[in-house]
Design a protein around this nucleic acid. Structure first.
Length: 266
DNA sequence: GAGCCTGTTCGGGC
DNA sequence: GGCCCGAACAGGCT
């Protein structure tokens, strides 16, 4: 599930516990998600530490704790964050829990494609690598010049695969890429080099629009976008394009399940 | 029971 | 070297 706006929404569950003092309740460090992080190490760092703030960037999250300690979380395909009651009891696929006097913060991930990591910095400032992340598409720093520079030497790339590259368009995932291409009226299997300048401009415009709007709608309370979006039609068998009212097509493009509207996208 | 999957990484090929 | 692609990862759901 988690792409840009869903990640932001999940982070808000943990952010609701800002100011609470936590200790490690459990980390299953044999889970793939732990990637070598040992529960003793995490317990040592997070013994009675206060959650100061939470940040998101694309599909990444970073939670700052007192003691210059940062917990990085990536949700992968099936990860989720929850804030439960203080007496919450562990269930299958709960890999990490932090407990305060008031709540249990939980990381759950059945397929274990998610990732947990611990970072420390001098004086509690954000890690350098975090500060150096490229601008997100909805950011004011993501200018059309930035967009064009990112596209350099990628003229042979298939549009669908291009949009999924996190180092270029952090946060864009499978459904967002389909939504962007549908709004830009571009077939997902087009190569970047075949686009006219007007089509490149449309791609830039719709990329930014979908990121901004999904954050506004989904990021706030996990609402579904309106029926006018491809989002609400794309997974149903026999889905109908909200623009053309004709059947949507579903095929694998750039290795991913892709939905598009043949009459709308050229 | 087989097939599918909203993500990332890695190895191979060009 | 740079870029692209497909497979692998694991488990729940249809």
């Amino acid at each position: 599930m988690p792409e840009l706006a869903e990640v932001y929404y999940h982070s808000s569950h943990w952010k609701a516990a800002q100011g609470e003092r936590f200790r490690l309740a459990w980390l299953h460090d044999k889970t793939r998600c732990a990637r070598g992080l040992a529960s003793e190490a995490l317990a040592g760092k997070l013994s009675s530490s206060t959650l100061l703030s939470g940040y998101t960037h694309g599909k990444r999250m970073l939670f700052a704790f007192s003691g210059s300690c940062f917990l990085e979380v990536h949700l992968g395909m099936t990860g989720s964050l929850h804030r439960m009651d203080v007496d919450y009891e562990e269930r299958k696929h709960d890999h990490l829990a932090l407990k305060s006097e008031a709540s249990t913060l939980l990381f759950r991930d059945p397929r274990q494609f998610g990732k947990l990591a611990l970072h420390e910095t001098e004086g509690g400032k954000l890690p350098d690598w975090w500060e150096a992340l490229p601008p997100e598409p909805h950011d004011v720093a993501f200018t059309s010049e930035r967009f064009e520079s990112v596209l350099k030497r990628r003229e042979k790339a298939v549009l669908k695969g291009l949009l999924l590259q996190q180092e270029l368009f952090p946060g864009v995932g499978n459904w967002m890429a389909d939504e962007i291409l549908w709004r830009a009226r571009l077939r997902p299997d087009r190569r970047l080099g075949s686009l006219s300048q007007a089509e490149r401009d449309a791609l830039y415009r719709e990329l930014r629009w979908v990121c901004r709007e999904s954050l506004r709608i989904i990021g706030k309370d996990y609402s579904d976008p309106p029926k006018s979006w491809l989002f609400t039609h794309r997974w149903k068998d026999g889905g109908i394009c909200p623009k053309s009212k004709l059947p949507l097509k579903r095929e694998t493009v750039a290795g991913r399940t892709t939905c598009w509207s043949p009459e709308v996208q050229r």
